[in-house]
Design a protein around this nucleic acid. Structure first.
Lengths: 139, 139
DNA sequence: GTTCAAGATTGTAATAATTACAAGTTTGAA
DNA sequence: TTCAAACTTGTAATTATTACAATCTTGAAC
């Protein structure tokens, strides 16, 4: 299933989640901005078109989307939480220099050790930190 | 190299880090409590023997140990940062039920994709969330 | 179209982990 | 013993997130 606004909207409808104007705008923003934005980024960008938008609404909506399984919470940074509309398993690389977060493919399932066989795993996160190729070139 | 208090103390001495009473106590605590403690846990436990110990000192010491490469920062939880004296690569599993954090072995290096070959990787973290076997049994 | 209750949004206040900072203390070399 | 550098401490500031109450919106039933 492709991560389009329409598909995700349909998925929410099927889950009986009410689709307010704000929620749809936030969802649309996440689809169009695949940079793993923070609440602050979402807020300051959407505020331009919706002056009365509240940060609390963004927090509430993101929590709702997480519970509905449409958003993945990324805690690769100490301070601010980031959000990813792509919930399929993949790794995240954070460049310490430019601050960008890169996606990369990784299939970790074959490596899960025997000692976790009796554990129920809800989510798997792979976080790398370092310097990206571009920043290495510039330096 | 085994993770004993004496070995780590020696390593700090070689790095010309001054070994105050407080720092040594915190280091010793980390060696003896391999449960990935929070600052709060370290503080409330050590305070019993050192009534004047300050949380700021714990924060400062942990930052120093991290910079010296003797401690790994674990951000598997949203709110509180945890600290691990074992800096060798391994995975962390957090049980949503009992809150415990389990270590598990995993060698992710063979899976690093081609597209990161030009990136400089400082740290690799693997975080799983779920329910541990014991909590599944009880339920 | 109107009514109305359930649910969503908003702004403010509260919470809590972490950091900044300045004053006091310790340390170790000369 | 002296003294400067470094460490510790307590308080205050910072800041992401949550709690909450008042207001607004929504959509189904009539």
């Amino acid at each position: 299933m492709k991560l389009t606004f329409e598909n995700l909207k349909q998925e929410l409808k099927e889950k009986n989640v009410s689709l307010s104007h704000q929620r749809l705008k936030i969802l649309e923003y996440l689809v169009q901005n695949r940079c793993h934005p923070t609440v602050e980024q979402i807020y300051s960008d959407l505020q331009k078109d919706m002056p009365t938008l509240s940060k609390t609404t963004i927090y509430n909506t993101l929590r709702m989307l997480e519970k509905a399984g449409l958003v993945k919470v990324i805690t690769i940074e100490d301070k601010e939480t980031r959000y990813d509309i792509d919930t399929k398993d993949h790794g995240h690389f954070k460049c310490e220099s430019c601050g960008n977060i890169f996606d990369f493919p990784i299939d970790i399932d074959p490596l899960i050790p025997e000692e976790l066989s009796e554990f129920k795993i809800f989510s798997k996160d792979v976080y790398f930190n370092g310097i990206c190729a571009r920043c290495l070139d510039i330096a």
